[in-house]
Write a protein that binds this DNA or RNA. Structure first.
Length: 214
DNA sequence: CAGACGATTGCCT
DNA sequence: GGCAATCGTCTGT
């Protein structure tokens, strides 16, 4: 158990359903806080509690990749809910999203930080030289820690074998903070200001990014 | 087809 | 605190 862990986890192996993801993106984002992301590989499970995420809400959201419409990259976001949208950025980093909304309507939740739970040694091995705090406290860090790359783009969280999101830990509504999203200075002011980032207040594994100014 | 830039990170001063 | 890394995606010619 890592220092800073905030509570027990119910490992009942119950995956979230298709219907969970087929809802408005903001509701899904808020409800993903406290859930368990599971990466299965070679018969082993690496997992972590989702402690920070952000909603990207369709074509009208200028921070969302879907604001430029349906392209080869955004195809998965337009598809059925409950699938992984994995994309490459800054020439070196992978990002993991969960697709939301009914089939045909684009939306996704970016997973920004996890609290490591299962196979912490495997996670450390994938993040050599990093402190425990730095293992999964950022969207690219958690992908590196869980060996997630473009080969997992489009895989299914509900029925797939590589990735799953399970029930995890119940987090009281009052423990969830919200505020502007990080790293979207390119977006319109209304979208820069929108409080669509969610995190567990005080959790030590939340990322250190700074939200954009107005 | 050239050019700009990114839902970030880690190293440096 | 500043800034380089590094390449896929998208835009406009």
């Amino acid at each position: 158990m890592l220092p800073g862990m905030t509570g027990p986890i119910c490992l009942e192996n119950s995956r979230l359903s298709r219907e969970f993801f087929a809802r408005p993106t903001l509701e899904v984002a808020r409800d993903l806080i406290g859930r368990l992301l599971v990466r299965s590989q070679g018969g082993r499970r690496r997992s972590g509690i989702i402690v920070e995420c952000e909603a990207y809400v369709g074509e009208a959201d200028t921070a969302c990749h879907a604001s430029r419409g349906l392209t080869p990259r955004t195809r998965i976001m337009y598809g059925p809910p409950g699938h992984a949208y994995v994309y490459f950025t800054y020439g070196m980093h992978w990002m993991l999203n969960a697709v939301t909304e009914p089939d045909g309507i684009p939306g996704a939740v970016l997973l920004r930080a996890l609290e490591p739970v299962e196979d912490i040694d495997g996670i450390r091995a994938a993040r050599q030289g990093r402190s425990d705090r730095e293992l999964t406290s950022g969207p690219a860090r958690l992908c590196a820690a869980f060996s997630i790359d473009g080969s997992l783009n489009g895989t299914d969280f509900v029925l797939g074998t590589d990735l799953a999101i399970e029930e995890g830990r119940r987090v009281p509504r009052t423990a969830i903070a919200r505020g502007p999203r990080i790293g979207i200075g390119y977006a319109a002011p209304k979208d820069r200001r929108a409080p669509w980032r969610f995190w567990i207040e005080g959790n030590p594994f939340v990322s250190r990014g700074q939200p954009p100014g107005n």
